[in-house]
Amino acid sequence: MVRENPGWGYRRVHGELTTLGIEIVPSTIWEILKQEGLDPAPERASTTWADFLRSQANALPACDFIETITLNGQRQYVLAVIEHATRRVRVLGTTAHPSATWVSQAMKNFVMDLDDAGCRARYLIRDRDEKFPALMDEILAEAGIKTLCTGIRMPRMNSIMERWVQSCRRELLDRCLLWNEHHLRHALREYEHFYNQHRAHQGLNQAAPLRPVPAPITDPKRITDLNICRRDRLGGVLHEYSHAA
């Protein structure tokens, strides 16, 4: 049984023997596995998906499409990319017709943007949406970026991107009356700037992707005499607070 199932840990072997009415001390199973040249706890040496995401976060962006409908009845497809380590978002564009040519050009622009920003990426996570053409993977491969496809109906494998999609819907798309594609692009540019430059993120200890946390105010007088101003974006859909000059 042990030779047929080398991936089993010793605790599982002990459990299976117990169900058969065979009593044996777990440490004895450990010694037998070691004598046979088998790792008594192979799962400890394996790499989980979560381990991979953490270890490659600095070189790991993810992408996805968001669908929305404007007031003129046109369905729009928004393509966005997020960096796992910094949570920086890049909205690559929006279109009513996400053809292979359009998606491929958007990825070329993304690769050039990474080069200009001095960012390195080794992998790109995406789902198995048919809107992602094979040419897109070839463009990324030429730039040294390997495409990783998530499992079927497993959105948690792309959880950081999915979380941004939820934020974009809740904070922008569900709160705006977007007239047409031009208006949608304007709203997405505003939200991208807000998300990267101002919005606090719990996963970044309340910093923003492109803004560090400021030094805390320790002078009681400054706290008493705070002068805060608010800047509204998109007619008040988004609010930014800062110290008045």
Results as ranks from 00 to 15, higher is better:
Val25Asn: 15
Val25Cys: 15
Ser27Asn: 15
Ser27Ile: 09
Thr28His: 10
Trp30Pro: 01
Glu31Thr: 09
Glu31Leu: 07
Glu31Pro: 01
Leu33Phe: 01
Gly37Asn: 10
Asp39Cys: 10
Asp39Gly: 06
Ala41Asn: 13
Pro42Ser: 02
Glu43Asp: 09
Ser46His: 11
Ser46Asn: 03
Thr48Pro: 08
Trp49Cys: 07
Ala50Gly: 01
Asp51Lys: 07
Phe52Cys: 04
Leu53Asp: 09
Arg54Tyr: 09
Ser55Glu: 15
Asn58Ser: 11
Leu60Val: 10
Ala62Met: 13
Ala62Ile: 05
Cys63Gln: 12
Phe65Lys: 05
Ile66Lys: 02
Ile66Thr: 03
Ile69Asp: 14
Asn72Glu: 14
Gln74Ile: 04
Gln76Ala: 04
Tyr77Thr: 04
Leu79Glu: 09
Leu79Pro: 03
Ile82Pro: 01
His84Cys: 01
His84Met: 02
Thr86Ser: 15
Gly93Asp: 10
Thr94Arg: 04
Ala96His: 07
His97Thr: 09
Pro98Ala: 04
Thr101Pro: 00
Trp102Thr: 08
Trp102Asn: 02
Ser104Cys: 05
Met107Trp: 11
Asn109Ala: 09
Asn109Tyr: 04
Phe110Cys: 03
Val111Trp: 01
Val111Lys: 03
Val111His: 04
Asp113Glu: 14
Asp113Pro: 00
Ala117Leu: 15
Ala117Trp: 06
Cys119Gly: 00
Arg120Phe: 11
Arg120Tyr: 06
Arg120Lys: 10
Arg120Ser: 10
Arg122Asn: 12
Arg122Ser: 08
Tyr123Phe: 15
Tyr123Thr: 05
Asp127Glu: 10
Asp127Phe: 11
Arg128His: 05
Arg128Gln: 13
Asp129Trp: 03
Asp129Gln: 07
Glu130Ser: 12
Lys131Trp: 00
Phe132Cys: 05
Phe132Ile: 12
Ala134Met: 00
Met136Gly: 02
Met136Lys: 03
Met136Gln: 04
Glu138Ser: 11
Ala141Lys: 15
Glu142Lys: 09
Glu142Arg: 14
Ala143Tyr: 10
Gly144Ala: 08
Ile145Leu: 02
Thr147Tyr: 13
Leu148Glu: 01
Leu148Val: 14
Thr150Ala: 13
Pro155Met: 13
Asn158Val: 01
Asn158Phe: 01
Asn158Tyr: 03
Ser159Thr: 04
Met161Phe: 09
Trp164Ala: 02
Trp164Glu: 02
Ser167Lys: 07
Cys168Ala: 15
Arg169Trp: 14
Glu171Ala: 08
Leu172Thr: 02
